[in-house]
Design a binder for these strands. Structure first.
Lengths: 238, 238
DNA sequence: GAGTGGTCTAGACCACGAG
DNA sequence: TCGTGGTCTAGACCACTCA
């Protein structure tokens, strides 16, 4: 038995892909669509939430629901491909950074493998595209390792060149969850839209953690890409 | 102004972490909790959805809401670390596979870089832990490359050894979205719980795509881990 | 101010699980 | 059968955007 919301989502999805609704166009209001499909507004909204999570529809509070322009996704680049210039995003994104010193919160002591209450430098990154924020990153480095280097566009990292030489391993863990209230307001996304939560831990040759990054990417317009290349003998690079 | 749902979620989260509700324990029914917090059941349910997406609460239809036991997450292993024995999950998961031959659907022709309507072998993987399904994978290989090798536990790949030698590149793209109706029913998850959608494309040295895998992991109890190691000269492995 | 989406309510009814 | 969560309704009220 197909649920009402998926039936409506399927119908709207088809109308979008068939060109009946064109990219950038505003959809009829939720009240009108609810009447057309003879459902309540809540049900219709849950159908739109499906399309939003697929990146097909963008919801703008007070204005309307819009068909997304394709290829509008931002991609976080992880793995080896990101290690050359340390570019995590495409360079056209504007980045703002704010640096503070904090005592290690409890959930970070195990991640960074540092004693409780030790000093960390926290850098808060916010990536903008135009006026709208597109991603959020908290980066933590042991106090004293923090550089004064300027941040390049698209770059989500704070390691100076002298430390990159000691890099031994980068671990990136990706999960999906709903945003916290704070994340939803700063990213200006709906609280019911899942985000990609990415935790990146960088370790040097001695096994010491030299950087931890917690990234939050809106699920409707962001994904993460990891590329692995092989050596000629067929073995993976270790 | 904090929303009701987040306030309730914060309170329940605190009661869980403080041990007032213990792992494995059943929470009071949604009706009882709604009365206790003097909210409607819908609002209370949206608060529980937050905790579910964080992996703190497991919802079981017709039975109750339960505090999750910690470290119960399954991890998809990507990147170089997965390439040795091609193990994507820990080996205690049981895997079932079903093989069919299909014409390439339109959304796969660009991914696999094959002409439309060309023949593909499709393998449907379902990973179980005990009786409950935990992940879903569609794997596509050009017709003729499909092996008859048995599938190892935890393994999500169908490449025979002779083809692994030709591996040149693996690209893994991760995004978060709501599940389709079919995915929700086969994974037995709530349709409002976001999933991790993972697309993995394997290319050989000649640039030909030899395998495409579409994985769906429930967002509450799965994440993906990518590990990158460096060479001694400080350069990334390419 | 008019119209939009966002939150929340107080129910009804259905689907599922366990005894 | 009973109690549970899942879906859906028909509203009310608030917050936001734009003319």
């Amino acid at each position: 038995m197909p649920s009402r919301r998926h039936a409506i989502a399927d119908d709207l999805r088809h109308q979008i892909s068939s060109g009946h609704f064109k990219p950038g166009e505003r959809l009829p209001s939720e009240a009108q669509l609810a009447t057309r499909y003879t459902v309540s507004t809540s049900t219709l909204r849950s159908a739109l939430a499906l399309l939003q999570s697929e990146g097909l529809v963008e919801k703008i509070h007070g204005n309307g629901n819009f068909v997304c322009r394709p290829l509008h996704k931002i991609t976080y680049t992880g793995g080896a491909a990101a290690l050359g210039p340390w570019t995590a995003f495409s360079a056209h994104l504007q980045m703002t950074a704010r640096t503070t010193n904090v005592e290690a919160p409890s959930h970070l002591t195990t991640l960074l493998n540092v004693p409780p209450r030790s000093l960390l430098t926290e850098i808060l990154f916010i990536a903008h595209e135009g006026k709208t924020p597109h991603s959020l990153a908290h980066i933590y480095v042991p106090h004293g390792l923090a550089p004064a280097t300027p941040h390049l566009p698209g770059q989500i990292a704070v390691l100076p060149a002298c430390h990159r030489l000691l890099l031994a391993e980068v671990q990136e863990r990706v999960s999906a969850r709903l945003p916290t209230e704070e994340e939803a307001t700063t990213l200006r996304i709906s609280p019911s839209l899942a985000v990609l939560a990415l935790t990146r831990v960088t370790t040097d040759a001695t096994g010491r953690v030299i950087e931890a990054a917690l990234l939050v990417l809106p699920g409707d317009r962001a994904d993460a890409l990891f590329t692995t290349r092989m050596t000629e003998d067929g073995n993976s690079k270790k």
